[in-house]
């Protein structure tokens, strides 16, 4: 019963209920993701590669936030990712508090060819830990893995950093697309797993939302008939 109640709370934060069953873009959950990391590590390019399957060669600096969405599938469940791409520039960091609020996943990105971006990870991690809830899944991504010749950060040390801090870890390339899909999917799987096993211990008040009567149950969304009002059918 306790696990069931937990489930209900998790749903409140992470999900939007299923829409009409016949809808072509029907989805069961909505996860908020944020992408953080120094300027120029390729955050927007990762997002673009993930949502458009294309590499953006001349990516303009992100100002404020840009949003990307894509529906993925985990264990047969359709999940909509609402991805917040933040500006890496220092001067925008003052306004990032709302970015973190309610985030189910965070992609923390550094550039394997620039050591400084790796060195700053601990301050990004501090922000993420302070401003998200304890169950936010953080995945560390070493971007620009295609530039092996210019590598400045070894795979092993980053892997070790991730393990010490309980982060998922991948090296990826927004340019070639290598591991980009996996980065977003791995985080989603972890979040979904947390919902399933009820391991999320969530402070609902902090997220400022009420739980809804519908809760996930062994792959099924609701134990009761589907409430009709949920979700905009856009």
């Amino acid at each position: 019963v306790k696990s069931r109640i937990n489930n209900m709370y998790c749903m409140a934060v992470f999900t939007l209920n299923a829409k009409m069953a016949t809808a072509p873009y029907n989805y069961s959950y909505i996860f908020k993701y944020i992408i953080i990391g120094d300027m120029g590590v390729g955050k927007s390019c990762l997002l673009h590669q993930f949502t458009e399957k294309k590499f953006m060669a001349d990516c303009p600096h992100t100002i404020g936030v840009e949003f990307g969405t894509r529906i993925i599938e985990v264990s047969g469940q359709k999940i909509k990712l609402q991805i917040w791409d933040t500006a890496g520039q220092e001067r925008f960091r003052a306004v990032t508090r709302s970015y973190y609020r309610g985030a189910a996943g965070a992609l923390m990105v550094y550039d394997i060819t620039r050591r400084s971006t790796y060195n700053h990870l601990s301050s990004w991690l501090t922000d993420a830990r302070n401003l998200t809830n304890p169950n936010t899944v953080i995945i560390l991504i070493g971007n620009k893995a295609d530039l092996e010749a210019q590598r400045d950060v070894t795979y092993e040390e980053a892997k070790q950093f991730a393990e010490e801090n309980g982060l998922l870890f991948l090296e990826a390339s927004a340019k070639t697309g290598e591991n980009v899909e996996d980065a977003f999917l791995e985080a989603a799987k972890k979040i979904y797993q947390n919902i399933q096993d009820g391991s999320l211990d969530l402070n609902a008040a902090e997220s400022g939302v009420q739980h809804k009567p519908s809760a996930p149950q062994g792959g099924r969304l609701t134990s009761e008939p589907q409430p009709q009002r949920e979700g905009c059918g856009c």
């Binding site: 409140a12 934060v13 992470f14 939007l16 909505i30 908020k32 949003f67 969405t69 909509k80 609402q82 609020r101 309610g102 997220s207 400022g208 939302v209 009002r229 979700g231 905009c232 856009c234």
Partner: peptide, 17 residues
């Protein structure tokens, strides 16, 4: 509708609109 839903859902609605 927005008052009754979470922020993430409301943001989703804005993006969709």
């Amino acid at each position: 509708w927005v008052q009754k839903h979470t922020e993430v859902e409301a943001v989703d609605l804005v993006l969709k609109l």
